[in-house]
Design a protein around this nucleic acid. Structure first.
Lengths: 204, 204
DNA sequence: CTTGAATCCGAACGATGTTAGGGAATCCGA
DNA sequence: TCGGATTCCCTAACATCGTTCGGATTCAAG
Protein backbone atom coordinates (compact mmCIF):
# COMPACT_ATOMS: atom_id res chain seq x y z
CA UNK A 1 0.00 0.00 0.00
CA UNK A 2 3.04 2.21 0.06
CA UNK A 3 2.71 3.71 -3.38
CA UNK A 4 3.36 2.22 -6.76
CA UNK A 5 7.09 2.51 -7.54
CA UNK A 6 6.35 3.74 -11.05
CA UNK A 7 4.00 6.43 -9.91
CA UNK A 8 6.64 7.32 -7.37
CA UNK A 9 9.19 7.76 -10.08
CA UNK A 10 6.73 9.96 -11.95
CA UNK A 11 6.06 12.10 -8.94
CA UNK A 12 9.74 12.20 -8.18
CA UNK A 13 10.58 13.47 -11.62
CA UNK A 14 7.77 16.01 -11.43
CA UNK A 15 9.06 17.26 -8.12
CA UNK A 16 12.59 17.49 -9.49
CA UNK A 17 11.38 19.63 -12.37
CA UNK A 18 9.45 21.86 -10.01
CA UNK A 19 12.59 22.33 -7.94
CA UNK A 20 14.59 23.09 -11.07
CA UNK A 21 12.07 25.75 -12.07
CA UNK A 22 12.17 27.32 -8.62
CA UNK A 23 15.97 27.35 -8.60
CA UNK A 24 16.00 29.12 -11.94
CA UNK A 25 13.36 31.54 -10.67
CA UNK A 26 15.51 32.43 -7.65
CA UNK A 27 18.46 33.01 -9.91
CA UNK A 28 16.46 35.33 -12.15
CA UNK A 29 14.93 37.16 -9.23
CA UNK A 30 18.29 37.73 -7.61
CA UNK A 31 19.81 39.18 -10.76
CA UNK A 32 16.83 40.95 -12.32
CA UNK A 33 14.86 41.89 -9.24
CA UNK A 34 11.66 40.45 -7.87
CA UNK A 35 9.51 41.96 -10.59
CA UNK A 36 11.95 40.94 -13.32
CA UNK A 37 10.75 37.38 -13.39
CA UNK A 38 9.44 36.81 -16.92
CA UNK A 39 7.80 33.46 -17.57
CA UNK A 40 9.15 33.15 -21.10
CA UNK A 41 12.70 33.68 -19.90
CA UNK A 42 12.19 31.40 -16.94
CA UNK A 43 10.88 28.66 -19.23
CA UNK A 44 13.81 28.98 -21.64
CA UNK A 45 16.16 28.80 -18.66
CA UNK A 46 14.91 25.30 -17.87
CA UNK A 47 14.61 24.29 -21.52
CA UNK A 48 10.95 24.62 -22.25
CA UNK A 49 8.30 27.00 -23.55
CA UNK A 50 6.32 29.36 -21.33
CA UNK A 51 2.98 27.53 -21.39
CA UNK A 52 4.66 24.33 -20.23
CA UNK A 53 5.28 25.92 -16.86
CA UNK A 54 1.56 25.69 -16.28
CA UNK A 55 1.92 21.92 -15.99
CA UNK A 56 3.84 22.55 -12.77
CA UNK A 57 2.36 25.78 -11.40
CA UNK A 58 -1.13 27.16 -11.79
CA UNK A 59 0.09 30.70 -12.31
CA UNK A 60 2.98 33.05 -11.84
CA UNK A 61 1.67 33.84 -8.39
CA UNK A 62 1.79 30.14 -7.56
CA UNK A 63 5.51 30.25 -8.36
CA UNK A 64 5.93 33.24 -6.05
CA UNK A 65 3.99 31.36 -3.40
CA UNK A 66 6.28 28.35 -3.64
CA UNK A 67 9.29 30.65 -3.40
CA UNK A 68 7.74 32.36 -0.39
CA UNK A 69 7.40 28.97 1.30
CA UNK A 70 11.03 28.13 0.54
CA UNK A 71 12.16 31.45 1.94
CA UNK A 72 10.13 31.10 5.11
CA UNK A 73 11.46 27.58 5.64
CA UNK A 74 14.99 28.86 5.17
CA UNK A 75 14.45 31.31 8.00
CA UNK A 76 13.07 28.63 10.28
CA UNK A 77 16.12 26.51 9.61
CA UNK A 78 18.46 29.42 10.23
CA UNK A 79 16.75 30.26 13.48
CA UNK A 80 17.19 26.72 14.76
CA UNK A 81 20.92 26.90 14.11
CA UNK A 82 21.57 29.87 16.40
CA UNK A 83 23.65 28.67 19.34
CA UNK A 84 21.92 29.24 22.66
CA UNK A 85 24.08 30.71 25.37
CA UNK A 86 21.71 30.36 28.26
CA UNK A 87 21.63 34.13 28.70
CA UNK A 88 18.24 35.24 27.44
CA UNK A 89 19.38 38.75 26.58
CA UNK A 90 22.31 37.51 24.49
CA UNK A 91 20.02 35.07 22.75
CA UNK A 92 17.58 37.84 21.92
CA UNK A 93 20.35 39.92 20.42
CA UNK A 94 21.51 36.93 18.41
CA UNK A 95 17.98 36.39 17.18
CA UNK A 96 17.61 39.97 16.02
CA UNK A 97 20.95 39.97 14.30
CA UNK A 98 20.12 36.68 12.63
CA UNK A 99 16.80 38.09 11.47
CA UNK A 100 18.37 41.14 9.92
CA UNK A 101 21.20 39.10 8.46
CA UNK A 102 18.70 36.79 6.86
CA UNK A 103 16.84 39.76 5.40
CA UNK A 104 19.86 41.57 4.04
CA UNK A 105 21.74 38.67 2.54
CA UNK A 106 19.10 38.32 -0.16
CA UNK A 107 17.15 41.50 -0.91
CA UNK A 108 14.84 39.78 -3.37
CA UNK A 109 13.88 37.17 -0.80
CA UNK A 110 13.36 39.86 1.83
CA UNK A 111 11.15 41.78 -0.53
CA UNK A 112 9.12 38.68 -1.32
CA UNK A 113 8.66 37.75 2.33
CA UNK A 114 8.23 41.08 4.06
CA UNK A 115 6.95 43.56 1.52
CA UNK A 116 3.74 43.47 -0.46
CA UNK A 117 5.41 44.52 -3.67
CA UNK A 118 3.94 42.13 -6.26
CA UNK A 119 0.63 43.57 -7.45
CA UNK A 120 -1.92 40.81 -6.95
CA UNK A 121 0.12 38.43 -4.84
CA UNK A 122 -0.83 37.19 -1.40
CA UNK A 123 0.77 34.07 0.03
CA UNK A 124 -1.46 31.08 0.63
CA UNK A 125 -2.55 30.70 4.27
CA UNK A 126 -0.52 27.49 4.59
CA UNK A 127 2.49 29.23 3.11
CA UNK A 128 2.03 32.27 5.31
CA UNK A 129 1.81 30.04 8.36
CA UNK A 130 5.43 29.03 7.81
CA UNK A 131 6.52 32.65 8.01
CA UNK A 132 4.41 33.19 11.11
CA UNK A 133 6.08 30.21 12.73
CA UNK A 134 9.43 31.84 12.05
CA UNK A 135 8.45 35.09 13.76
CA UNK A 136 7.14 32.97 16.63
CA UNK A 137 10.76 32.05 17.32
CA UNK A 138 11.61 35.70 17.78
CA UNK A 139 8.64 36.01 20.08
CA UNK A 140 10.01 33.15 22.13
CA UNK A 141 13.28 34.99 22.51
CA UNK A 142 11.40 38.00 23.81
CA UNK A 143 9.50 35.81 26.24
CA UNK A 144 12.91 34.64 27.41
CA UNK A 145 13.58 38.06 28.89
CA UNK A 146 10.10 38.31 30.28
CA UNK A 147 8.48 40.35 27.52
CA UNK A 148 5.14 39.01 26.42
CA UNK A 149 3.38 42.14 25.21
CA UNK A 150 2.51 41.42 21.58
CA UNK A 151 3.30 45.02 20.75
CA UNK A 152 6.90 44.35 21.65
CA UNK A 153 7.11 41.60 19.09
CA UNK A 154 5.63 43.88 16.47
CA UNK A 155 8.08 46.58 17.41
CA UNK A 156 10.99 44.16 17.18
CA UNK A 157 10.10 42.98 13.70
CA UNK A 158 9.29 46.55 12.71
CA UNK A 159 12.79 47.63 13.66
CA UNK A 160 14.24 44.62 11.87
CA UNK A 161 12.42 45.17 8.61
CA UNK A 162 12.88 48.92 8.83
CA UNK A 163 16.61 48.59 9.16
CA UNK A 164 16.70 46.03 6.40
CA UNK A 165 14.74 48.25 4.12
CA UNK A 166 16.93 51.29 4.71
CA UNK A 167 20.01 49.18 4.34
CA UNK A 168 18.99 47.64 1.05
CA UNK A 169 17.88 50.83 -0.62
CA UNK A 170 20.49 53.22 0.72
CA UNK A 171 23.69 51.43 1.52
CA UNK A 172 25.24 49.02 -0.97
CA UNK A 173 28.50 49.07 0.95
CA UNK A 174 27.10 48.22 4.34
CA UNK A 175 29.81 48.64 6.95
CA UNK A 176 27.88 51.32 8.72
CA UNK A 177 24.69 49.36 8.82
CA UNK A 178 25.91 46.24 10.49
CA UNK A 179 26.88 48.36 13.48
CA UNK A 180 23.51 50.01 13.26
CA UNK A 181 21.96 46.62 13.78
CA UNK A 182 23.92 46.29 16.98
CA UNK A 183 22.75 49.67 18.13
CA UNK A 184 19.14 48.75 17.41
CA UNK A 185 19.42 45.51 19.35
CA UNK A 186 21.07 47.39 22.19
CA UNK A 187 18.43 50.04 22.18
CA UNK A 188 15.64 47.53 22.06
CA UNK A 189 17.08 45.50 24.90
CA UNK A 190 17.64 48.62 27.00
CA UNK A 191 14.07 49.66 26.49
CA UNK A 192 12.80 46.19 27.27
CA UNK A 193 14.90 46.04 30.41
CA UNK A 194 13.65 49.37 31.56
CA UNK A 195 10.00 48.55 30.98
CA UNK A 196 9.45 44.79 30.53
CA UNK A 197 5.75 45.28 29.87
CA UNK A 198 5.78 48.96 29.04
CA UNK A 199 2.97 50.82 30.80
CA UNK A 200 1.53 54.01 29.35
CA UNK A 201 3.56 56.83 30.66
CA UNK A 202 2.23 60.34 31.08
CA UNK A 203 4.03 62.81 28.96
CA UNK A 204 3.27 66.45 28.71
CA UNK B 1 10.77 91.18 -20.49
CA UNK B 2 8.53 89.42 -17.99
CA UNK B 3 7.02 86.83 -20.27
CA UNK B 4 4.43 87.19 -22.95
CA UNK B 5 0.97 87.08 -21.35
CA UNK B 6 -0.30 84.75 -24.05
CA UNK B 7 2.55 82.31 -23.60
CA UNK B 8 1.85 82.56 -19.90
CA UNK B 9 -1.74 81.58 -20.40
CA UNK B 10 -0.58 78.65 -22.48
CA UNK B 11 1.83 77.51 -19.86
CA UNK B 12 -0.81 78.06 -17.22
CA UNK B 13 -3.29 75.85 -18.99
CA UNK B 14 -0.64 73.23 -19.57
CA UNK B 15 0.26 73.27 -15.90
CA UNK B 16 -3.40 72.96 -14.94
CA UNK B 17 -3.77 69.89 -17.11
CA UNK B 18 -0.65 68.37 -15.62
CA UNK B 19 -2.07 68.92 -12.18
CA UNK B 20 -5.37 67.39 -13.21
CA UNK B 21 -3.56 64.31 -14.49
CA UNK B 22 -1.60 64.00 -11.28
CA UNK B 23 -4.73 64.37 -9.16
CA UNK B 24 -6.40 61.59 -11.13
CA UNK B 25 -3.26 59.49 -10.79
CA UNK B 26 -3.28 59.88 -7.00
CA UNK B 27 -6.90 58.88 -6.91
CA UNK B 28 -6.25 55.76 -8.95
CA UNK B 29 -3.18 54.86 -6.96
CA UNK B 30 -5.00 55.21 -3.68
CA UNK B 31 -7.85 52.95 -4.75
CA UNK B 32 -6.06 50.47 -7.00
CA UNK B 33 -2.64 50.41 -5.43
CA UNK B 34 0.61 51.89 -6.63
CA UNK B 35 1.05 49.34 -9.40
CA UNK B 36 -2.56 49.65 -10.49
CA UNK B 37 -1.98 52.84 -12.39
CA UNK B 38 -2.86 52.06 -16.01
CA UNK B 39 -2.23 54.82 -18.52
CA UNK B 40 -5.32 54.05 -20.58
CA UNK B 41 -7.56 54.31 -17.52
CA UNK B 42 -5.75 57.38 -16.30
CA UNK B 43 -6.22 59.06 -19.68
CA UNK B 44 -9.95 58.24 -19.78
CA UNK B 45 -10.27 59.68 -16.28
CA UNK B 46 -9.16 63.08 -17.53
CA UNK B 47 -11.02 62.79 -20.84
CA UNK B 48 -8.35 61.86 -23.30
CA UNK B 49 -6.61 58.91 -24.94
CA UNK B 50 -3.54 57.23 -23.54
CA UNK B 51 -0.95 58.57 -26.00
CA UNK B 52 -2.06 62.13 -25.29
CA UNK B 53 -0.55 61.83 -21.85
CA UNK B 54 2.82 61.88 -23.52
CA UNK B 55 2.27 65.54 -24.34
CA UNK B 56 2.53 66.22 -20.62
CA UNK B 57 4.84 63.52 -19.32
CA UNK B 58 7.67 61.74 -21.07
CA UNK B 59 6.77 58.37 -19.67
CA UNK B 60 4.86 56.62 -16.92
CA UNK B 61 7.93 56.89 -14.74
CA UNK B 62 7.89 60.65 -15.24
CA UNK B 63 4.38 60.65 -13.78
CA UNK B 64 5.61 58.67 -10.80
CA UNK B 65 8.47 61.12 -10.45
CA UNK B 66 6.11 64.09 -10.38
CA UNK B 67 4.00 62.32 -7.77
CA UNK B 68 7.12 61.58 -5.75
CA UNK B 69 7.98 65.27 -5.78
CA UNK B 70 4.47 66.20 -4.64
CA UNK B 71 4.63 63.67 -1.84
CA UNK B 72 8.01 64.86 -0.66
CA UNK B 73 6.85 68.48 -0.71
CA UNK B 74 3.78 67.49 1.30
CA UNK B 75 6.05 66.11 3.98
CA UNK B 76 8.14 69.23 4.06
CA UNK B 77 5.03 71.32 4.52
CA UNK B 78 3.73 69.06 7.24
CA UNK B 79 7.04 69.20 9.06
CA UNK B 80 7.00 72.99 9.08
CA UNK B 81 3.56 72.99 10.70
CA UNK B 82 4.61 71.06 13.80
CA UNK B 83 4.40 73.41 16.79
CA UNK B 84 7.72 73.82 18.55
CA UNK B 85 7.58 73.61 22.32
CA UNK B 86 11.12 74.65 23.06
CA UNK B 87 11.82 71.30 24.67
CA UNK B 88 14.02 69.46 22.20
CA UNK B 89 12.98 66.02 23.34
CA UNK B 90 9.29 66.77 22.99
CA UNK B 91 9.93 68.22 19.56
CA UNK B 92 11.79 65.10 18.53
CA UNK B 93 8.90 62.93 19.61
CA UNK B 94 6.50 65.16 17.71
CA UNK B 95 8.69 64.86 14.64
CA UNK B 96 8.75 61.09 14.77
CA UNK B 97 5.02 60.88 15.32
CA UNK B 98 4.45 63.26 12.45
CA UNK B 99 6.71 61.21 10.22
CA UNK B 100 4.87 57.99 10.94
CA UNK B 101 1.51 59.72 10.69
CA UNK B 102 2.47 61.06 7.30
CA UNK B 103 3.52 57.58 6.16
CA UNK B 104 0.47 55.75 7.40
CA UNK B 105 -2.23 58.15 6.32
CA UNK B 106 -1.56 57.29 2.69
CA UNK B 107 -0.02 53.85 2.11
CA UNK B 108 0.37 54.37 -1.61
CA UNK B 109 2.33 57.58 -1.07
CA UNK B 110 4.46 55.90 1.56
CA UNK B 111 5.20 53.06 -0.82
CA UNK B 112 6.12 55.48 -3.58
CA UNK B 113 8.41 57.55 -1.34
CA UNK B 114 10.05 54.96 0.86
CA UNK B 115 9.96 51.67 -0.97
CA UNK B 116 11.51 50.74 -4.26
CA UNK B 117 8.52 48.83 -5.49
CA UNK B 118 8.08 50.06 -9.07
CA UNK B 119 10.31 47.97 -11.33
CA UNK B 120 12.39 50.46 -13.29
CA UNK B 121 11.63 53.61 -11.32
CA UNK B 122 14.17 55.82 -9.60
CA UNK B 123 13.32 59.38 -8.68
CA UNK B 124 15.19 62.16 -10.46
CA UNK B 125 18.05 63.62 -8.43
CA UNK B 126 16.21 66.95 -8.13
CA UNK B 127 13.07 65.14 -7.01
CA UNK B 128 14.98 62.99 -4.57
CA UNK B 129 16.60 66.07 -3.12
CA UNK B 130 13.19 67.22 -1.88
CA UNK B 131 12.78 64.02 0.08
CA UNK B 132 16.29 64.36 1.47
CA UNK B 133 15.45 67.87 2.61
CA UNK B 134 12.50 66.46 4.49
CA UNK B 135 14.60 63.92 6.34
CA UNK B 136 17.01 66.72 7.09
CA UNK B 137 14.32 68.22 9.30
CA UNK B 138 14.25 65.04 11.34
CA UNK B 139 18.01 65.22 11.57
CA UNK B 140 17.69 68.75 12.92
CA UNK B 141 15.39 67.49 15.63
CA UNK B 142 17.98 64.93 16.59
CA UNK B 143 20.65 67.58 16.66
CA UNK B 144 18.36 69.44 19.03
CA UNK B 145 18.94 66.81 21.68
CA UNK B 146 22.63 66.68 20.90
CA UNK B 147 22.66 63.67 18.61
CA UNK B 148 24.68 64.21 15.44
CA UNK B 149 25.76 60.69 14.59
CA UNK B 150 24.38 60.04 11.10
CA UNK B 151 23.67 56.48 12.14
CA UNK B 152 21.10 57.79 14.57
CA UNK B 153 19.19 59.49 11.81
CA UNK B 154 19.23 56.32 9.77
CA UNK B 155 18.04 54.38 12.76
CA UNK B 156 15.24 56.84 13.39
CA UNK B 157 13.93 56.67 9.85
CA UNK B 158 14.43 52.92 9.88
CA UNK B 159 12.18 52.62 12.91
CA UNK B 160 9.68 54.93 11.30
CA UNK B 161 9.46 53.13 8.00
CA UNK B 162 9.59 49.75 9.69
CA UNK B 163 6.64 50.56 11.89
CA UNK B 164 4.79 52.03 8.96
CA UNK B 165 5.42 48.95 6.89
CA UNK B 166 4.23 46.57 9.58
CA UNK B 167 1.25 48.74 10.26
CA UNK B 168 0.15 48.93 6.68
CA UNK B 169 0.50 45.25 5.88
CA UNK B 170 -0.69 43.79 9.16
CA UNK B 171 -3.09 46.09 10.88
CA UNK B 172 -5.92 47.76 9.00
CA UNK B 173 -7.57 48.73 12.29
CA UNK B 174 -4.65 50.48 13.85
CA UNK B 175 -5.46 51.28 17.46
CA UNK B 176 -2.64 49.13 18.66
CA UNK B 177 -0.11 50.67 16.33
CA UNK B 178 -0.53 54.29 17.22
CA UNK B 179 0.55 53.44 20.75
CA UNK B 180 3.38 51.42 19.31
CA UNK B 181 4.62 54.58 17.69
CA UNK B 182 4.73 56.22 21.09
CA UNK B 183 6.67 53.31 22.48
CA UNK B 184 9.15 53.51 19.64
CA UNK B 185 9.67 57.21 20.14
CA UNK B 186 10.04 56.63 23.85
CA UNK B 187 12.51 53.85 23.30
CA UNK B 188 14.50 55.83 20.81
CA UNK B 189 14.68 58.87 23.06
CA UNK B 190 15.69 56.76 26.04
CA UNK B 191 18.48 55.22 24.05
CA UNK B 192 19.59 58.57 22.74
CA UNK B 193 19.57 59.99 26.23
CA UNK B 194 21.62 57.14 27.57
CA UNK B 195 24.24 57.35 24.86
CA UNK B 196 24.02 60.62 22.93
CA UNK B 197 26.70 59.59 20.49
CA UNK B 198 26.66 55.91 21.17
CA UNK B 199 30.16 54.50 21.56
CA UNK B 200 30.86 50.87 20.79
CA UNK B 201 30.19 49.00 23.92
CA UNK B 202 31.83 45.73 24.80
CA UNK B 203 29.29 43.04 25.24
CA UNK B 204 29.81 39.49 26.10
C1' DC C 1 -2.58 -2.73 -29.15
C1' DT C 2 -5.36 0.43 -27.28
C1' DT C 3 -6.68 3.78 -23.83
C1' DG C 4 -5.91 7.74 -21.21
C1' DA C 5 -3.37 10.79 -18.58
C1' DA C 6 0.67 13.80 -18.40
C1' DT C 7 3.72 16.82 -20.79
C1' DC C 8 5.03 20.00 -24.17
C1' DC C 9 4.55 23.18 -28.02
C1' DG C 10 2.75 26.75 -31.46
C1' DA C 11 -0.71 30.09 -31.94
C1' DA C 12 -3.38 33.34 -30.13
C1' DC C 13 -5.97 36.59 -26.68
C1' DG C 14 -6.25 40.60 -23.83
C1' DA C 15 -3.75 44.12 -21.49
C1' DT C 16 0.31 46.69 -20.80
C1' DG C 17 3.63 50.97 -21.99
C1' DT C 18 5.09 53.30 -25.94
C1' DT C 19 5.88 55.17 -30.83
C1' DA C 20 4.48 56.84 -35.52
C1' DG C 21 1.85 59.71 -38.34
C1' DG C 22 -1.88 62.62 -39.33
C1' DG C 23 -5.46 66.06 -38.46
C1' DA C 24 -7.19 70.05 -36.21
C1' DA C 25 -7.07 73.81 -33.50
C1' DT C 26 -4.37 77.79 -31.84
C1' DC C 27 -0.98 81.37 -31.84
C1' DC C 28 2.49 84.20 -34.19
C1' DG C 29 4.63 87.26 -37.62
C1' DA C 30 3.66 89.41 -42.10
C1' DT D 1 -6.34 88.94 -42.90
C1' DC D 2 -3.41 85.54 -44.33
C1' DG D 3 0.42 81.64 -44.24
C1' DG D 4 3.49 78.93 -41.18
C1' DA D 5 4.61 76.98 -37.00
C1' DT D 6 3.42 74.99 -32.72
C1' DT D 7 0.59 72.45 -29.66
C1' DC D 8 -2.62 69.09 -28.68
C1' DC D 9 -5.13 65.01 -29.47
C1' DC D 10 -6.40 61.12 -32.07
C1' DT D 11 -6.19 56.29 -34.54
C1' DA D 12 -3.25 52.60 -35.52
C1' DA D 13 0.22 49.82 -34.45
C1' DC D 14 4.30 47.44 -31.99
C1' DA D 15 6.58 44.70 -28.45
C1' DT D 16 6.01 42.49 -24.30
C1' DC D 17 3.55 40.56 -20.59
C1' DG D 18 0.65 36.53 -18.28
C1' DT D 19 -2.42 33.27 -19.78
C1' DT D 20 -5.61 29.96 -22.55
C1' DC D 21 -6.61 26.80 -26.34
C1' DG D 22 -5.98 22.85 -29.14
C1' DG D 23 -3.28 19.57 -30.86
C1' DA D 24 0.72 16.76 -30.92
C1' DT D 25 4.00 13.47 -28.42
C1' DT D 26 5.19 10.40 -24.77
C1' DC D 27 4.46 6.62 -21.85
C1' DA D 28 2.56 3.65 -18.26
C1' DA D 29 -1.87 0.72 -17.64
C1' DG D 30 -5.38 -2.37 -19.00
Amino acid sequence: MLGNPIRDRRAERREATRAEILDAAWEMVRSEGLAGLALRDLARKVGMQAPSLYSYFDSKHAIYDAMFAQGARAYLERESLIPTTGDALTDLRAGLRSFIGFCTEDPARYQLLFQRTIPGFEPTPETFAIAVAGLERLKDRLAGIGVTDPRSVDLLTAIGTGITDQQISNDPGGGRWSRLVDDAAEMFCNHMNATPNPPRRNRK
